[in-house]
Design a protein around this nucleic acid. Structure first.
Lengths: 137, 137
DNA sequence: TGCTCTATTTAGACTATGTCTAAATATCGG
DNA sequence: CCGATATTTAGACATAGTCTAAATAGAGCA
């Protein structure tokens, strides 16, 4: 595994326009290299093992900062955070960036190909999640 | 708007194999008819306006029951429940039903069509979310 | 009807996770 | 080194979900 050095991390933060403090470098060292898709609290737990006195607020603020500067993406995929839909047949979803409102998109309105060619997975279901703005009511 | 009667709701619950109590009918009256994609607490707040003494535990248990009997789906799309991904280029995601682990799927591994034909939306991003099981490591 | 067994509901304690604030600390430019 | 600004901190607070033991309601039956 290629180990990312502190100097590399500092460089990445600076190129993103972020001042590299010790806490930020420690957080970056984990979250910019992981493939685990951690929640904010998981990042906090993990970073604390190397950097025990970092506060929760710093981790949350830093993750927000990294996201604003394009180093991270936030995915609305945290397990256990669900919403209920009485429309049980397969369909896709549109999430309005402005209002947060979730709307159904009929299955036939989009076409998804090559799902059957995915290797090593037994697919139970899939859907497209589209995000953006409404241009009319 | 076609009003769903209590008799209709009772009938749906019974056909799904659920004994229809007053609380369950009240919860069904809202959640099986809405297009709002509410969270569990939102369902509780809403149902309480008509049925003030319903407890939170009942609403949570009932939503779980409805889901198990196929009347509802749970969507992992609740706003504010995020996970972080340092892979900022567009890609899709696979969620393992067994472990909950989220894995990246390369953009090129799937094909999504007709997104540009969606009416009334200005698309910022989209992704496919695939759920299922791994068949090998 | 009244009894008993089971299913359902309840209040509220508990936990986990995210937000906010005011104070303390660190860093930068001069 | 100094003052101004940026950053971090502890911990209170808020919100949402889980759990439990006790109370209530309903079904089947004598």
């Amino acid at each position: 595994m290629s180990k990312t050095t502190a100097a590399d991390l500092i460089d990445r933060l600076e190129r993103a326009g972020i001042r590299p403090s010790a806490q930020r470098v420690a957080i970056a060292g984990y979250v910019l290299a992981t493939s685990e898709h951690p929640s904010a609290d998981e990042v906090w737990q993990r970073v604390k093992t190397d950097f025990p006195m970092v506060s929760r607020a710093t981790v949350y603020n830093t993750l927000q900062l990294f996201t604003e500067h394009g180093l991270l993406r936030q995915l609305v995929l945290a397990e256990g955070c669900v919403v209920f839909d009485p429309h049980v047949a397969p369909h896709h979803h549109f999430v309005d960036d402005v209002t947060g409102r979730i709307e159904d998109i009929p299955w036939s309105a989009l076409r998804v190909g090559k799902v059957d060619q995915l290797e090593g997975v037994d697919v139970r279901e899939y859907m497209v999640v589209v995000r953006g703005r409404r241009t009319r009511g």
